[in-house]
Nucleic acid binder design. Structure first.
Length: 723
DNA sequence: GCGATCAGCT
DNA sequence: CACAGCTGATCGC
């Protein structure tokens, strides 16, 4: 299973609870009234917030900024044990009045307080103070409903002595006892030994005979009435849905349990769900939706290949018990030895040379040819551009070049461009006269627009469509890197197919494209070819960003910044726009660029070039790189915004202990920066899986695997795991 | 003067 | 640490 395959991934996830979660307290605990009953706050010590008369025109998004329900500060919640120092009086003026006012004063006097205090004031507490106003959103918002479950979880953690709500009980009932034993939801006796049918008979009997006296049933009845009035047999419902809920929870999506419960989705129905279905039942966030879709496809595969898969899994699990010594030996196996099954192949084994001494410059070749991307050897002649072309820019068995515009030569007239990133098209200028450029439609549009290459020089390759170029069959596929990025399969006359990945992020869909001829050479994007590069799926990171924004968005004077390259990371801010139902500001140049990327009209409506229409701005990534720059931006918007929340989607955020953390949060004064590992390259795990599936004879790395640790790290890869 | 290239920086 | 690309200096035409 692609998601969550290491079981404790989710422990690393620190998705901040959103304000909407807080907002649900009232419907959940109607008798509790104010949250302050949960958290006893000491009296206010000093005033923190200033009042703001008047009204400021900060384009309120429907049901979002207009509603103060997005009020919880995520991190305030996390530290709720330390009693926040804030009172109702503190909160009211800022949240109500600071949505107005061009007075220029910040909504709270940060200078006098620590950063943590600021978060507390600007976060949870203020949100709580406005509880009374938030029903408008919380009752209607799908997000709010989806988050209901996690709110309950949070409550449990905060105060375990709290009596459980009916829903808690039901959820527990549904999920408990599935790991080791299965209990009758009514009499709670262990029925694991019984067959599925017998279990149902048992519970039905319990229902008939004992139910009226059993507290459990009452719980069931109450609980089910929370979900659907017309449930005929609550116990049956629990039995049917329980595995589904457990499965959902195993994906780390416990908060969507109530959706599945509400829709009464049983195990069979689950397997037939499409992404559209998921959307329609209310799983609107891309991240969780994709996660479920992926897991479902795995589920279906497993169901299909039931017996053979089991046998294979058994053999693979056996193989994982080999000793380290055995692994070493297999790693050190000489190239002359017979090729072993792909499933047991190391990435290292695909590289030329002795695996025990992986050369720092790969592949092994004369020193003069070990040119890397940046340090090319200059030579005279040939228009001053002739340099030694790295192997990854060539296609074995063909005269073609890929992303090799830094190495223009007259002996080639077929130039492929995998995607429009500077380090791949560098050297390409409008004076290019070396033949034709083959690329995707999107890349062609960009090359034409940004560099000025005439269309006559551009040959568009349609995805999945085989064309013959100079006697070589060429097919390209989506590389899942940036818009327009492709990986290309070349099938020369010699029968030795070459797959050039360009830059790519592995996706299981890719395997569908590769069913044709076996790949002899794989030119692989090895950017993150090191086990230390293990980051979450994009969906998880998107979800993190969305929830972080929700958590901080209580304040209409908050400016959100999302970093972006020329192209790439579009999905991130597009999804933010979709989920928050708020337009995103981009500058006109960026809009022009986005118009080349083939987004639907529906998607494009989320962008605006009018700054005042949105408080979520897309900015170049480097402007977020330092707090100094961010402060500069803050100064520019002193009147409109008092808080800046920036998201830096870098390829990989450091943190060896938190290997799959979806992000970390840094703060200086009124500026918060999240660094999120939104990667458009494959992680090491993904590379392993991809290589294993493609099973090439030779791998040509596109990025040198440098660094002192690389050799040993690569060798210690050991056996590739079962997939 | 303009485009291309490179080093430095983030 | 790495990506992907900006800025500014310099070079060549």
């Amino acid at each position: 299973m692609m998601w969550n395959n290491d079981g404790d991934d989710d422990d690393d996830f620190q998705i901040p609870p959103s304000s909407s979660q807080l907002s649900l307290r009232k419907p959940l605990h109607p008798t509790n009234g104010s949250i302050s009953q949960h958290h006893h706050r000491p009296p206010r010590k000093k005033p923190r917030l200033s009042r703001y008369p008047g009204k400021e025109n900060i384009a309120p998004a429907p049901e979002f900024t207009s509603s103060p329900c997005f009020s919880s500060g995520s991190y305030a919640l996390g530290s709720s044990s330390s009693t926040p120092d804030c009172s109702l009086l503190d909160c009211i003026p800022s949240s109500v009045d600071c949505s107005a006012g061009d007075s220029g004063e910040p909504f709270c006097s940060l200078a006098a307080e620590t950063e943590e205090e600021h978060v507390l004031v600007g976060g949870k507490e203020k949100g709580e103070c406005f509880k009374a106003n938030h029903e408008g959103y919380s009752c209607n918002s799908m997000e709010a409903r989806l988050l209901l479950k996690s709110r309950i979880r949070l409550d449990e953690e905060e105060d375990e002595s709290d009596s459980e709500s009916e829903l808690d009980v039901l959820i527990k009932l549904c999920s408990e006892g599935r790991d080791d034993s299965i209990q009758c939801p009514l009499c709670e006796t262990d029925i694991s030994a019984l067959s599925e049918e017998e279990r149902q008979v048992h519970t039905n009997n319990c229902l008939d005979t004992q139910a009226p006296q059993q507290g459990s049933l009452r719980k069931c009845e109450k609980s089910s009435s929370l979900i659907e009035e017309s449930v005929d047999d609550p116990v049956q419902l629990v039995n049917d849905i329980s595995p589904v809920l457990k499965w959902v929870r195993s994906l780390g999506l416990a908060k969507y349990e109530d959706v599945f419960l509400r829709e009464e989705i049983d195990w069979d129905t689950l397997q037939s769900l499409t992404e559209e279905d998921l959307l329609s039942i209310g799983i609107t966030s891309l991240g969780p939706r994709k996660k479920i879709v992926n897991a479902l496809s795995t589920l279906r595969e497993e169901a299909c290949a039931a017996s053979s898969a089991e046998a294979q899994a058994q053999s693979l699990s056996n193989s994982s018990h080999v000793t380290d010594r055995q692994r070493e030996r297999s790693t050190y196996r000489k190239a002359s030895e017979p090729k072993k099954p792909t499933a047991n192949k190391l990435i290292t084994e695909f590289f030329p040379g002795d695996a025990t001494k992986i050369p720092k410059k790969l592949p092994k070749e004369p020193v003069a040819e070990q040119s890397c991307r940046r340090a090319a050897v200059r030579r005279n002649g040939n228009n001053g551009k002739s340099k030694v072309i790295p192997q990854w820019n060539c296609v074995p068995g063909t005269p073609f070049r890929v992303d090799a515009f830094k190495y223009l030569t007259r002996d080639c007239c077929h130039w492929f461009l995998t995607h429009f990133h500077l380090d791949h098209y560098q050297g390409l200028t409008k004076s290019f006269s070396h033949g034709r450029i083959y690329c995707s439609l999107i890349t062609a549009k960009l090359v034409n627009m940004k560099i000025g290459i005439p269309w006559e020089r551009l040959q568009v390759l349609n995805l999945g469509q085989k064309v013959s170029i100079a006697g070589v069959d060429v097919t390209c596929f989506d590389a899942n890197h940036c818009p327009g990025s492709i990986m290309i399969r070349f099938e020369p006359a010699n029968g030795k197919a070459v797959l050039h990945t360009g830059d790519f992020r592995y996706s299981e869909d890719m395997l569908n494209y590769l069913t044709g001829s076996p790949i002899s050479s794989l030119v692989l994007d090895t950017t993150y070819c090191n086990p230390q590069y293990d980051f979450p799926k994009q969906e998880a990171v998107i979800q993190f960003v969305v929830e972080s924004i929700q958590a901080e968005a209580f304040n209409p004077k908050t400016l959100f910044l999302i970093g972006s390259y020329t192209i790439g990371k579009e999905r991130l801010f597009l999804e933010v726009a979709r989920v928050l139902r708020e337009k995103i500001y981009i500058n006109p140049a960026k809009l022009k660029l986005l118009e080349c990327l083939g987004f639907s009209k529906e998607d494009m409506q989320w962008f605006t070039v009018k700054e005042e229409e949105s408080h979520i701005h897309v900015v170049p990534l480097w402007t977020l790189a330092s707090f100094k720059r961010l402060k500069h931006i803050a100064n520019r918007y002193t009147n409109r915004y008092s808080l800046i929340v920036a998201f830096s989607p870098t390829g990989w955020t450091s943190g060896k202990s938190k290997k799959k953390s979806p992000g970390r949060r840094l703060q200086q004064g009124t500026i918060i920066r999240y660094e999120v590992p939104y990667s458009e390259h494959s992680s090491f795990t993904e590379l392993k899986e991809f290589v294993q599936k493609v099973s090439p004879e030779v791998i040509i790395p596109s990025v040198n695997i440098d660094g002192p640790e690389s050799a040993s790290a690569m060798v210690s890869m050991l056996l590739t795991e079962s997939v």
